[in-house]
C-alpha cells in the first residue's frame, strides 16, 4: 500500500520573511538561464576552436619572447650572436608582434564567437514568446530593462569565453614571458584595446542575435535568421566590392567593419594580409548603428510582449 511521504503535508505555510523589490533583479534570470544552457553538453564543442587557437597563439607569443631573449626553448644551447638561436631571436622580434597575434586571433575567431552567441542567444526571447514565459516574468517586480539585461548577461559570458578570455590569456602569456614586463610597459595599451574590440564585437553579435530572437517564436528560426543576416550582409558587401572594384563597400559587412575597427584601434595598415583602407568612421558608424537598431527593436518587441502578453 502506498503512503504519502511525511513531507507532503499539503498545508499552506505562510512565509515568515519579507519579500520586497531588490536591486540586481536581472541576475537571477541570467543565472537560471545559464544553468539551463549548460544542461546540453554537446554545444560546448563550439568552444573547442577558440580553445585550440588560444593555445597556438599563446605558444607563438611565448616563443617570440623566448627567442628574443636568445633563449632557445630547449636549454643548453650557445647564445652567440651568430648562433641560430640569436638569428631566430632577431627574426622573431621582427616578424612576430603581439598585437598582430591578438588581432589575428580575434579576426580568425569572430565566426566562432558569432556561432556561440547565436547558439546560446537565439532561443532566449523566441522561446519565452512561444511558451509565454514573459507573462510570468512581467507579473513580477521586474522592469523591461531588467528583463533585457538578464538576457544580455546570459549570452555575454558565453561570448566572452570565446573572445575576451582568450585575449586575456594571450596578453597574460605575453606579460609573463616578456623580459622585465617589457610587454606591459611598452605595449600595455594593447590590453585595453583588445578589451574594447572584444566588447564591441560581442555587443554587436549579442544585440543582433537577441533582436532577431525577439522577432521569432522558435530558436531554430532565430538561429537561421541570425546567421542568414550576417551572411546576407557579407554577401552584399562582397558582391558590391567585386562589381565596383571598391574596397570601401566592405563597410557594409559586419566582419569587414570589425576588421577595419581592429586595424584602426591597433594602428595596423594590414590585418591578416589584407589592406584595410576603407573608412574607419564609416565602420564605427555601421557597427554602432547596427547595435542601436537592434536595441531599438529589442525595446519595442519587449514592450509589445509586456503589453500584449
Amino acid at each position: 500500500m502506498s503512503r504519502q511521504a511525511s513531507t507532503h503535508t499539503e498545508i499552506y505555510r505562510p512565509y515568515a520573511g519579507q519579500a520586497g523589490v531588490r536591486s540586481w533583479r536581472s541576475l537571477p534570470l541570467a543565472r537560471a538561464q545559464i544553468a539551463r544552457a549548460f544542461r546540453r553538453k554537446l554545444p560546448l564543442i563550439l568552444f573547442a576552436p577558440p580553445l585550440m587557437a588560444t593555445v597556438i597563439f599563446s605558444f607563438v607569443v611565448y616563443s617570440k619572447f623566448a627567442l628574443e631573449a636568445g633563449i632557445n626553448p630547449t636549454p643548453g644551447v650557445d647564445n652567440d650572436a651568430r648562433s641560430p638561436a640569436a638569428l631566430m631571436g632577431n627574426m622573431a622580434s621582427n616578424l612576430i608582434q603581439v598585437k598582430e597575434q591578438i588581432v589575428g586571433f580575434h579576426l580568425a575567431m569572430n565566426l566562432f564567437v558569432l556561432l556561440a552567441v547565436a547558439w546560446y542567444g537565439a532561443g532566449l526571447i523566441a522561446e519565452d514568446r512561444r511558451e509565454k514565459a514573459h507573462l510570468l516574468y512581467f507579473a513580477r517586480p521586474i522592469t523591461r530593462t531588467d528583463y533585457l539585461l538578464g538576457k544580455f548577461l546570459t549570452v555575454l559570458p558565453f561570448g566572452a569565453v570565446a573572445t575576451v578570455l582568450p585575449g586575456i590569456v594571450i596578453c597574460a602569456v605575453a606579460s609573463f614571458a616578456s623580459p622585465d614586463w617589457s610587454f606591459v610597459r611598452e605595449e600595455g595599451d594593447v590590453i585595453w584595446k583588445m578589451l574594447v574590440f572584444s566588447l564591441v564585437s560581442l555587443l554587436c553579435f549579442t544585440s543582433i542575435t537577441l533582436a532577431i530572437s525577439s522577432l521569432c517564436q522558435r530558436k531554430t528560426h532565430a538561429l537561421a535568421g541570425t546567421l542568414g543576416f550576417f551572411l546576407l550582409l557579407q554577401g552584399i558587401a562582397a558582391l558590391l566590392w567585386s562589381l565596383q572594384r571598391d574596397r570601401s563597400w566592405l563597410v557594409l559587412s559586419p566582419f569587414g567593419s570589425l576588421r577595419r575597427i581592429a586595424a584602426g584601434l591597433f594602428e595596423m595598415p594590414r590585418t591578416l594580409g589584407m589592406r584595410t583602407d576603407w573608412s574607419l568612421s564609416g565602420s564605427w558608424a555601421f557597427i554602432l548603428g547596427l547595435c542601436a537598431l537592434s536595441l531599438l527593436i529589442l525595446w519595442w518587441r519587449v514592450r509589445v510582449m509586456e503589453r500584449e502578453g
Partner: peptide
C-alpha cells in the same frame, strides 16, 4: 498572478521555475 494560458519557461523543472520566480519576486 496565475495567467489563463499555458506559460512555462522551456527546459526548466517546476523547482527551477518557481524558485526563479520567487527570487524575481524579491525573496532571498
Amino acid at each position: 498572478y496565475m495567467p489563463e494560458s499555458d506559460c512555462l519557461a522551456p527546459g526548466m523543472s517546476a523547482v527551477q521555475l518557481v524558485s526563479l520566480l520567487g527570487e524575481l519576486s524579491g525573496l532571498p
